[in-house]
C-alpha cells in the first residue's frame, strides 16, 4: 500500500456554478466531501496538485481542511468539462482505512505474448481498469498485468490475472482482459469497394408492403 498523500483544502463559503467558475480561474478545483453520516462539506483544492495525484492513480487522500479538521477520503467521482477531459469537480467520500470499498484500478499491461508476434495478430485490451473490492489501506495505484502469461492462448481472462493480496475482482472470472485476433484477408485492410449508387436502400419498417396495401385499399373502399 503506497503512503497516503496529504493535500490542503479550503472550505467554500459560497457555492454555485458562478463561484465555482471563479475558483477554477484562480487555479483551484471545487470539490465536496461527504459520507459517514456527517454533513457534506464544500471545499476547494489546488488543481495542479490534485491532477498530479490523480494521474499517478491515487485513490485515497488525506485532506487537511482549513480550520483544523483532517479527513481521510476516497476519490469517489470526477466531473469533466464539455470536451470530456478536463476535471472540473471532485467528489470525496469519507472512509476508514480498514473499511472495504469498491474501486476501479488501472491495469498496466507489460510484455508481449508469443501468439501476438504471429503475422496478422492484433493484441486488443478489452479492459483498461478493473473494479476490485478491498480495504482502503490496500488499494494499489495500478495492477500489473503480465501478458507473457498468455503464452500461446488468445484470451486472457480476469480469473487468470494475479491480483495483489487482499483484492477481489467484482467482474466474472471469465471476462476477457486482453485478446488476440488475427487478420486473415489482405483486402480486409482498408480496401475500398466500388459503390453502385442507389443499389442498397434501408428497409422502411412503417411502410405498407405491396400486398398489404392492396388488401387495405379493398377494405376501405367498401
Amino acid at each position: 500500500m503506497p503512503k497516503t498523500p496529504s493535500i490542503t483544502a479550503t472550505t467554500r463559503e459560497r457555492t454555485g456554478s458562478r463561484y465555482a467558475q471563479r475558483l477554477r480561474k484562480q487555479g483551484r478545483l471545487p470539490a465536496v466531501i461527504y459520507g459517514h453520516e456527517t454533513d457534506p462539506m464544500s471545499i476547494s483544492v489546488d488543481e495542479k496538485e490534485m491532477l498530479i495525484h490523480l494521474k499517478h492513480g491515487t485513490h485515497v487522500l488525506s485532506l487537511n481542511v482549513e480550520g483544523g479538521s483532517k479527513e481521510t477520503c476516497l476519490v469517489k467521482e470526477l466531473q469533466f468539462g464539455y470536451l470530456g477531459d478536463n476535471v472540473i469537480h471532485v467528489d470525496f467520500a469519507r472512509v476508514d482505512l480498514d473499511e472495504e470499498v469498491h474501486v476501479h484500478v488501472h491495469l498496466n499491461f507489460v510484455g508481449e505474448p508469443a501468439s501476438a508476434r504471429k503475422t496478422g495478430a492484433i493484441l486488443s485490451h478489452d479492459l483498461t481498469e478493473l473494479e476490485v473490492i478491498c480495504k482502503v489501506n490496500e488499494i494499489p495505484d495500478e495492477i500489473r498485468v503480465d501478458l507473457n502469461l498468455m503464452e500461446e492462448a488468445t484470451v486472457l481472462t480476469v480469473g487468470e490475472v494475479p491480483l495483489p493480496p487482499g483484492l477481489r475482482a467484482t467482474a466474472h472470472p471469465g471476462t476477457p482482459v486482453a485478446h488476440i485476433s488475427f487478420v486473415h484477408k489482405e483486402e480486409a485492410v482498408g480496401e475500398e469497394v466500388e459503390v453502385v449508387s442507389g443499389a442498397e436502400e434501408p428497409e422502411v419498417i412503417t411502410e405498407a408492403k405491396p400486398d398489404e396495401a392492396e388488401s387495405g385499399e379493398g377494405g376501405t373502399s367498401t
Partner: peptide, 25 residues
C-alpha cells in the same frame, strides 16, 4: 455505411447546437 432498417424514409433537417454530452470520451 447506412442503417439497415429505418422507421421513416425522410427526415426534417433539424438544427445542430450545443456540445456533445455523450460519446465525448
Amino acid at each position: 455505411s447506412m442503417p439497415k432498417r429505418i422507421k421513416f424514409r425522410k427526415q426534417m433537417r433539424g438544427r445542430l447546437k450545443g456540445n456533445a454530452t455523450r460519446g465525448n470520451y
